[in-house]
Structure formats: structure tokens, C-alpha cells
Design a protein around this nucleic acid. Sequence first.
DNA 1: TTCGTCATGTAATGGGTTACATGATTAC
DNA 2: GTAATCATGTAACCCATTACATGACGAA
Lengths: 217, 217
Amino acid sequence: MGRNRSAVLELAVLGLLRRTPMHGYELRKQITSVLGLFRALSYGSLYPCLHELLAAGLIAEEHDEAEPDGPARAASAGRARRGGRALKVYRLTADGKERLQELLGEGGPAAWEDDGFGVHFAFFGQTRVDVRLRILEGRRSRLEERMESIRAALTRTRERVDSYTLELHRHGLESVEREVRWLNELIASERQVASEPPAAPESPTGIQENTSDKESS
Amino acid sequence: MGRNRSAVLELAVLGLLRRTPMHGYELRKQITSVLGLFRALSYGSLYPCLHELLAAGLIAEEHDEAEPDGPARAASAGRARRGGRALKVYRLTADGKERLQELLGEGGPAAWEDDGFGVHFAFFGQTRVDVRLRILEGRRSRLEERMESIRAALTRTRERVDSYTLELHRHGLESVEREVRWLNELIASERQVASEPPAAPESPTGIQENTSDKESS
DNA sequence: TTCGTCATGTAATGGGTTACATGATTAC
DNA sequence: GTAATCATGTAACCCATTACATGACGAA
């Protein structure tokens, strides 16, 4: 149906489901805790999105066929179902993985916006190094723009701003500066990763399969 | 008419117009620079809001009656009109001032949300000390909640988050902690102001009223 | 047996942005 | 004379939240 789901929500859902299949309720908690940091996502957004992704064939309901009562059942996604109530556990389809790669590979302007950045960053483990760098640098230059405009506002203080507004600007500027320094460190670290590793001749189109990454920061 | 305008936009408009009359275009720049820091407000939001406030009688179009060509004309709001084109310069009415006081005095939960806080803070110069304290403390406890939930997420790291997600959380936590420290300083400073000054016209802490506007009510 | 949490969903609503339309004024 | 900026506005759309509705399950 509607092509209305936002790219960041879609990315969050696909990315999390790729790590491990889940039902909606759990997914929502993960989104707000793993990616969110910020505000909680409401079910009114999540469930419709899941329905669309399902209709588009990017995700599928999991019928946990294996081990009807084996001891290892509770391991993968927590409990797959509870009592008699059938939980709708979603998993990523092949198409979904493709779409996820597409979204992860874009790294365009949407990825250095406030919202998008956090989500993209959270999935860096599944992202190519060059894309990681592109996103980090894009984000940085976005923040540098903001720094400049705050500095400009601070400079023309002749515009009679009271001390509170001034303090607000000062603090905001410091926050942004701090974040830029953080990005600088990350970028340096990524550059190192990007230059040294002729180790794995694999990854023609990209990312190696599992998330069992060790790549320290 | 629609009771649809958001409280923070209304506050921003009223608060800025109280400082100095302005037309919409200028107002928008001020909102995004003085209050915004964050993202720009679009005209599609601002103008309808102005129309509503006008209809509600909280603001009025200024007909600069005084001094048709006096030398002091350009001082207050920049040029009041430009060439032959009549700019719609809005000013706050008496009702508007009342409403502004109402909004400034509330200091409820809306004022410690991310958006609301910045706007309320920017107008602290026109806010009573006790309300300022209430807002700062409310904001702080909001941030402390967030800190707790991030810490919780960090603690249960057993949940196999990769190093990037971890780093994201770590950085997010530090940001919030930093902001809490900032609030602590502000609160301490406000407490001092609140305790000492029954008579003192000068406030030695550096925060003084400055809204030295002439009330043209 | 009642309350809290888990779990899934829908409809209405809200409030913002984008895109569009228009035109005057200033700077080059 | 033409491009950029100033200036005002409307309509369509986007997408998230809120409020509502439902029900199973575990614990007190």
C-alpha cells in the first residue's frame, strides 16, 4: 500500500530484525533503547510499518518450525511464543536483506540528519568502511555549518540578546563542538581501518555476512 | 478558529514580539537563530500561526503612527517598512502580554521537553525566579531519567550489542551527563538569586532583566 | 479477582514541512 | 536586466502521536 513509511523507521526495523527475529512489542523496546536514546516510538507508528513491510515482502512472520519443545528453544529470540497466544515474530526475508543493504549503502544527506545519523551509526557494524566514513564526514560538516551559524549569532551580540539567550547559545555551541571532536576521533579511527586491512580479500559488494564483528573502536 | 497552534511556537512568537515588533520574515529568522539553534521553522507554520494570533487579538499589525520621518524611526525594529511595500509589522497587544505571562508562568512538563525547554530558557529574562527554578529542576530530572535508562541499557550489555551501538550509548550518556552538570550550575546560580535579593536593583550574578522595553500598553 | 505487563491493532488528529504561487527591492 | 534576497501567503502531504479497543497471562 502506501509508500509512506519513513526511511529511518524502515531502516531501524530491518536492521534490528536482521540481528535477530522479534515480535513488534519487543522491537519497539529495542528501537527506543538501542537506537532511540531519544524519544519512544509509538505502536501507532510501528505496527502499520510492520504491516507494510510484510506486504512488501521484506519481512515475514516466523513459524518457528524447529524443535517443538527442545531445550534450546528460548535462546534465539527470547521466547518465540508465549503460552497459547501466538506472537507474531518477524524475520528478514532475502528481499529484506537486499533492501537493508541498499539503505545502509546510501549514506546520503538523510544519514547526517539528527535522526538518521543515530540509526545509521547503530548499524555501522553492517556497513562498509567507505560508507561509514562518508556518513561521519557528512555529519561533521553538517555540524560545522551549525557551529558557524551559532558563532555568527554569538558575534553579532550587539543585537541585544539577554544573558540567558547568550548562555543558551554558548552552551549549544560547546555541545556541537564536543560532538565534532567526537566525530573527528571516529573518523581518524575509521581511516586507519580503511587503510590497513588488505587482510580480507573477500567482500566484493560489501559487507561480510554476520554481525560477529570484533572491530574495536 | 483552530485551536491548533502549538504552545511552543506561540510562546516563541509572543516572547519575541514582546522584545520588539517585527514582521514575519524577520520573526522566522529570529526564531531559528535565537531559539532554534536546531532546525529552521518554515513559513508554512509561521504565517498561519500569526494569522491565528491576530484573530485571537493577541497581536496586532503595527501602523507606525508616530514620527513620519523622525530621525529615530529606524531604531526600534530596523526599518519599519520598506519602500512602497507595506510590511506587516506585528506587535504584542495587552491581551498578548497577558497570555505571554500565562505561558511563561506555567513551567509545566512541556517546559522540560527538548523543544519547550530551549524556548522557555530563552525567555528566562522575563520569567519569575521560582518558575525558572522549577523549569530547570524539571528539566534536570527529565534528563536524569534518560541517564538512568541509558545506563541500564549499558549495563545489560550481555544483550550482544556491537561496539558501535555501545559507543553511541557511551557518547549519548556523556552528553546527557554534561547537560546535567550545566543545569546544576544554573540551578545553583538561580538559588542564589532567589535567596538574596529582596531589594537589590542590581543582581551581581550577571543575570539582569534587560527587558528594558517601554511598555506601550 | 484484580492489577500490571505483554501484545496487537485502528482511527482520529495534530502539527509540521514541502511545494507552489506571487511580487517587490536591492546588488551586480 | 537579471539574479538574489526580502516578503507573504496557501494547499497538499507526511508521518508520528494520541486515544481507543481488545485480550491473554502472571502475580498479588
